[in-house]
Amino acid sequence: MTDVMDEQRFATIANLWNSRAKGLILEMDLKIEQADKNGVQIRMPFNPDFCLDEEGTMLHGGVLTALLDSAFGLANFLAIDDVQTMATLDLRVDYLRPAKSRADVMVFADCYRQTRHIAFGSGKIWFDTGNKEEVARGSATFALTRGNGGSLLDKMKTTGPGS
């Protein structure tokens, strides 16, 4: 029973995240492939605007950082039931290989520990080319406020584009 309710909650959050997307999330054209308590997997298509060269052979590292940050946000949202607000405290990224591919960029992120005030996240990035070699790895901490009234989910439902 709980599993079914959880699944519905995950689907609601993922749908909201997609439908209320604006700004950079929209620009990155993200597609959620997995979204549950164990983490999120998101796909980002190649975008020449995010490249370092006109020929579009290499992505700027900052795009990978932005992708990790986005994935951490969704992962927290899913893993923390009563999250009211969350703010990124810090973000650390190691660039393991040059981001030299036109394949879709894949990111996996999870919230691996949460306390009353803090959430800890870790994530990795690879290109969808089959070999799954990590291009970047990141971790982040978030400051949380929790509560039942006026959760972030409710705010997402009532604000955003078109409201």
Binding site: K22, L24, A66, S70
Partner: peptide, 14 residues
């Protein structure tokens, strides 16, 4: 296009 938080309309951390 720089917005990260759709509720507060703040810059995306990335």
């Amino acid at each position: 296009r720089f917005i990260g938080n759709p509720v507060l309309d703040t810059y995306h951390g990335g």
